[in-house]
Amino acid sequence: MTKNMIMGGLAVFVLAVLSPFWFNMVTTTQAAPEPELLGPAKEAKKCVLDTYEMRANHMSLLDEWRDAVVRDADRIYVAANGHAFNMSLSTGENSCLGCHEDKAKFCDACHTYTSVDPYCWECHTNPKEIE
């Protein structure tokens, strides 16, 4: 293998390793989102878990919920803080989207940012989207 080929390959490799750096220089970068609390959520102030726990753990909670609802027919979640919630993503007042009205601003902002694409919305509907 000639020296030029090696140098060429090496240059490609270095560029590839540095791609996260230069790629963000040549493209515009989206800033980290700040989830907004709107509507009822803004007033309620109390969610199922505290904020950090919710940010880190909500997917596991939802996983628990769906099993409880579908398999055990339990539909009410009495949280550790004493509040009762409707174990539903989108139906009813006391459900997730019942309180956090704006899915785009509440769910999607972070999900899009971190490339999380849950398949929840393939079936569950956002009441707002249904005219």
């Binding site: 339990d74 009410i76 550790a80 803080n81 174990m87």
Partner: peptide, 10 residues
Amino acid sequence: HGPAAAAKVK
């Protein structure tokens, strides 16, 4: 974390 455990009820 909480004083009381969460519960799932009907």
